[in-house]
Design a binder for these strands. Sequence first.
DNA 1: GATAATCAGCAGGCA
DNA 2: GCTGATTATC
Length: 641
Amino acid sequence: MSNILSEPGYLCDLNPPQKQAVLSVDGPLLVLAGAGTGKTRVLTTRITHILHEKKARPFEILAVTFTNKAAQEMKERVTKTLGTHIEGMWIGTFHSIGVKILRTHSEKVGLTPHFSILDFDDQIKVIKQICQSLDIDDKRLPPKHVASAISRFKDQGKRPDQAIHPDPQMVHVYKAYQERLQSLNAVDFGDLLLLTLLLFKNYPDVLAHYQRQFKYILVDEYQDTNAAQYVWLQLLAAHHQNICCVGDDDQSIYGWRGAEVGNILRFDQDYPGCGVIRLEQNYRSTHHILGAASGLIENNGRRLTKTLWTERDDGQKILIKGTWDGEDEARFVISQIENRRVPLNQVAILVRASYQTRLFEERLLTTGIPYRVIGGLRFYERQEIKDALAYVKLIYQKSDSLAFERVINLPKRGIGPSTIGVLHNISRERQINIIEATRVFVNEDQGRPGVRKTLSNFLNDVDRWHSQLDTMAHSDVVKTVLDESGYTGLWMSEKTSESASRLENLKELIKAIEDFGHLSGFLDHVSLVLDHFDNKQQDQVTLMTLHGAKGLEFELVFLPGWEEGIFPHPRCLQENGLEGLEEERRLGYVGISRSKKHLVISYALKRYSFYQGWTHVDPSRFLNEIPEDHFIHKPAGTSCF
DNA sequence: GATAATCAGCAGGCA
DNA sequence: GCTGATTATC
């Protein structure tokens, strides 16, 4: 209930800077929000306020985040503060907003509306093909390197003719790769932004339309934006200039995928006369934890200084524990979990690199403590799901060559590499996609009769399934396809527990399609939202990487493996020197500040690695940077109880 | 063309 | 320890 005298209810629980950040909706604004200072709350309340004051209609609000989870949370929290559900706001990740715009204008950038979105594996496959056809040795240019170089180009907003690289071959491959994507009617993640920028450049009227439409723009995690996203935002905000960017330079940890801290450091120059508000009151962590985090991050040079403070009590000092080796460390961590009696869903083990989770998993399994690994193989990255999705893509867009190649011999139909080779040749010679090439192959009576028959049957099946999309429920069609193609049979004939779970997963997939109703939205959903099946079981320990942990909080946090050679990550230092080191330090800051009450950092004295065997390792240099009055140190061999 | 066995190279984070 | 590529054999 609100009237002229009392302010609306959604404002009362905010502290003064938060309130200011919510109320100053007009003009550019930078909100520097330290860890745990309530930035999501500011963003959602701000949207609520804009709607409540009728400053804009829902579709005139654009709110961009980096993860689907953040977007989801934002939607839910706006619904909650407003008390009603509002449709039509543009809340989503940069990528999902990009898709939405591109689907509407696909033909202007040389795609059909059904263009498909390649994931990382598809990308690698395409790059391999291209390197082969250009006769490039994949020892000299490993596909993974090429893939990341191409991503960097796109992060920087550079198309092939603008790209510069020390190795000219790289630009070559990039060019060929783009041409190949175009002929596949496909885009990769980077294109979702790059092509939108191209669209805006070539069609000023389209740009003008969106510029006028988005009266209020909000950006989460602004410190993680790359050059392309930066330009994208600048273009869209140019007309109304009501852009509110929230971020924390101390939590910029995505330099390796093109993020530029400079964007947030430079905000006041890009938007002269902008407001700057600092959120410095931390509501998450105890004094000791905050002190440790601040002490560490103060070692970084270039920062927009913030001084976090808390009204919470001192709490426990953090524990820095030395261990003999990786197994000893895992045993120690798990015994701490058993002894500290914190609810398991409030416990997290955060590692630098995903392979580090293994030792902890083993230990958790032997002790029977339930756990979940986040960021491991996700649902949509599983083999059976990707196979099934290839079938779905194939029947939905009958020209999806990659999907065709994936399933043509799944289950085994006797179509091996040599037949595929022949099909490739036809497709190259006649400049048609591989599916058309197969039609030619069949119609022109090439190859052995058995192979021809198989392929012709397969094409007929695809056509038939495709036409069923018009009459049957899409989830039923998919079920039919998987059954009739023999794909389900493939796993049913295998009687292992693994195949059983694969069949379960396929059922889950059908269910997910049912929820969506139709395939077009579903396919975008799976390409962009990889964390759909987040079974929110209670009472399990969370294991994940430091990167995955940003934005989360736990009562008890373990940060194992704080050793030179692991953390800071050597490759990061090697590639980016001091800037790399500072990014690693920010990662440490993110890790520490995830903790609400208890924090345990550990290191081992020796490690086993696959190329060096057992080696003695030094504790991480970051340990020396944590102020002494905030921790207790227990060397290896000393008891903690 | 399929299958099993073996080997090589490798393991930073992600929408 | 895992994946992908290569080889040997049917």
